[in-house]
Design a protein around this nucleic acid. Sequence first.
DNA 1: GGCGCGTTTGACAACGTTGTCATCACCTCT
DNA 2: AGAGGTGATGACAACGTTGTCAAACGCGCC
Lengths: 337, 337
Amino acid sequence: MNDVAAAAGVALKTVSRVVNNEPGVNASTAERVHAAIESLGYRRNDGARTLRRGRTASIGLVIEDVADPFYSGLSRAVEDIALAEGCLVFTGSSGEDPARERELVLAFCARRVDGLIIVPAGTDHDYLTPEVEAGIAAVFADRPPGAGPDADTVVCDNAGGARAGTEHLLAHGHRRIAFLADAPSIFTAAERLRGYREALATAGLPYDEGLVAMGRPDQARVLADLRRLLRLADPPTALFTGNGQITVATLRALAGTAGPAPVRQAPSSGPVAIIGFDDFEPADLLGITVIAQDPAGMGRAAAELLFRRLSGESGPPQRLELPTRLVVRGSGERPPA
Amino acid sequence: MNDVAAAAGVALKTVSRVVNNEPGVNASTAERVHAAIESLGYRRNDGARTLRRGRTASIGLVIEDVADPFYSGLSRAVEDIALAEGCLVFTGSSGEDPARERELVLAFCARRVDGLIIVPAGTDHDYLTPEVEAGIAAVFADRPPGAGPDADTVVCDNAGGARAGTEHLLAHGHRRIAFLADAPSIFTAAERLRGYREALATAGLPYDEGLVAMGRPDQARVLADLRRLLRLADPPTALFTGNGQITVATLRALAGTAGPAPVRQAPSSGPVAIIGFDDFEPADLLGITVIAQDPAGMGRAAAELLFRRLSGESGPPQRLELPTRLVVRGSGERPPA
DNA sequence: GGCGCGTTTGACAACGTTGTCATCACCTCT
DNA sequence: AGAGGTGATGACAACGTTGTCAAACGCGCC
């Protein structure tokens, strides 16, 4: 900027004015400055600008894994809104590791992002309190924060969705419905379990722990649990799977593309009914009935909340609960064998 | 930092030394400083640090769309390597719009990112030349840049993959193979078309333009083209689809979940054979034979190239071509009807 | 002619760091 | 005792901007 000023024969401040389109610069002067900028290939240093002005025009987004379609949909929505607000986005994947979540968040804070959107991996967010007090806005998405500062939160109606899915299976005559999901320490999994139990209770059915399998969402665990479930003396006639990854893993296990030995269902029974929480790309091709949520909608809602805070809106923290939608495609409408 | 210095009764510079773990600070002094940092909740301002030191320890990643599984896989790999290098990542989706690509890249440059990884949407990258001359490292991924600075590039063996896929169909007796892909203006699509043509030529078969349908990867276009192809007097007995999105759209069209009227194949023929370029999440469940590439591997390769440049490696721009892999799952092995 | 006013411009400090160099106390060696 | 070395600390400028304030200028008006 100094060089530009020298080249144009004006003061530093005048260049600054031109660069920022501030009024009160003579047209011919501005012309000279523009010429100098052009010829020197000058580009404003936004880092210095940020230092001086206090706002960085950037936000941090911490999700579980960008490579998961659910979170990448959410990411894209956040990005779009941020760009429209003239804001850039730092993205980081925590991989469900609280330490990495913390590391990322604090690194973003050290960069003085204006705000954060966080899908919490850990349950302790006390480390955020000083940052929030220092003026960094935070919005939690998909899961509420654990201990820590009160902040806006966007979740989906996990329990309601699970209830609807379970009720749908019940309505089709199923009485033995297995529930396969993430570890119960994860908020969404716990909530979905709650919805499942509520639906059973409302229908007057007992809650059988033997039909519930929660844990890591990887193929091996799902395969083992599914094998156990289908070998029960009184096996389930329907499965409710607790997220997209687990649904796919389950389908793989059933199709026999998962491991050395395919999971065999009792020979007497027909194909098991299945409903999955979360829609996934070609669920329609596979004819899988799902409880769909809207990742992009969640990203939009979180980003909108954040930017509302950034533009000065105060008031108590909000908690938004987005609805889910039952999408009927066949797999959830098979009758019990 | 000033406040911390005052609270600890030391000079600014001593605090700086403590914060940066520089040697030559008395243990007891350091202790006092740490206590002051703790009690004031001080966190270093990386923006100022950056301004002083010249390196921002951040990179920019411009892809076509984070929500596309191919690019989100690539993203995640880039993120992981960057984090290991102590670097944060700005992510932006261009949505195949050259203007938005430019806008994002220039915004990243104004933030003085150390380097860029770009999946080019446009064909003109002259706008990058001054930035590269100013010292910002750039690596292109998935597609080479158009006009613009010479820079490292990572692509996959598009032509080779398409050749292998086409040859596989030929080996199974197909003589009428349709090719559905992205618009030919997109590098990968053009290369894959080249591979397809080479395979035909090697087999001594004529190239029939009527069997080629290129354009936007959306459902409506694919549906229309597929309908046209299957109504030909001499219809294709096999399809080669040019990327993940188009493969899924094609499967939808064939399954009839795509639009009002399902695409009907000639009643006399069996189901058409199909091979897709790009693996996609449940392709195994659907039994779709694919030419797989490795998005994470591409991200890793691009990030490694970038960080090698950032650590000072010079030399002419490199061009890496990653191999593809034929994954046999059934859909590509059906004989012609 | 002198005054006030608006427009254009510039000098300077400040943002929060870090690199350079100087200072100072203390110790060891001759 | 004095020279020289070592370790700890601090003063100050600089990074590239922008906000504040003041100066300089031209103009119309009393």
